[in-house]
Structures are given as structure tokens and as C-alpha cells.
């Protein structure tokens, strides 16, 4: 089956199993084309999420390490 791409950057990619009916997967096979570029917005979302998780994690650790004598030993 010949696939006429629509742009120079089109790359042929084997289809993956998807949340489709069997027939849908059959129909899609051999014609799945994915355009490959990274997304700036998506990258930003990832960076922000990871930064927040790290930041909140460290804050929780900081709270749990709180001791009156400031020795920094974990409690209990």
C-alpha cells in the first residue's frame, strides 16, 4: 500500500494497539503516520509538574525534620 505523505517530515510508524474496536485497528494498520516534533507547551507542563512535586516533597521533609534542638535527626 502506498502512502502519499503530506509533508517532508512525515514519518511512517508502526501502529500500536489502541482503544479501538478490532475493526478500527485493522483499518488503521499500515497507515498510521505520526508527525514528530517535541511540544514546547507539553515540556513546560512537565517541568512545572516535576518542579512542584520536588518542591512539595522537600517541604514535607523539612516539616517532619523539625526538632527543637535543630539537630536534624529524624524523629522517633
Amino acid at each position: 500500500m502506498r502512502v502519499v505523505g503530506t509533508d517532508r517530515k512525515l514519518v511512517l510508524k508502526p501502529p500500536k494497539k489502541r482503544l479501538l474496536t478490532k475493526r478500527g485497528i485493522e483499518l488503521m494498520s499500515n497507515t498510521e503516520i505520526i508527525f514528530q516534533t517535541p511540544g514546547v507547551g507539553g515540556a513546560l507542563a512537565c517541568v512545572v509538574i516535576v518542579a512542584l512535586v520536588v518542591c512539595y516533597g522537600f517541604t514535607l521533609r523539612w516539616i517532619s525534620r523539625g526538632r527543637e534542638d535543630q539537630t536534624g535527626e529524624p524523629p522517633r
Partner: peptide, 24 residues
């Protein structure tokens, strides 16, 4: 037409001014 890729359910499509003809 085998020369044009099919698509699946659940996606949007539109006129491309026959981009495939333009490329040929």
C-alpha cells in the same frame, strides 16, 4: 483509493487543497 491514507473514528479532518497532489 489506496494512495490516500485512511483515518480512524474520533478525529477531525478537513480540506488540504489536495496537498498530496501539490507534493506530486
Amino acid at each position: 483509493r489506496k494512495e490516500y491514507p485512511t483515518r480512524s473514528r474520533g478525529v477531525v479532518e478537513k480540506c488540504t487543497f489536495c496537498a498530496e497532489r501539490i507534493r506530486l
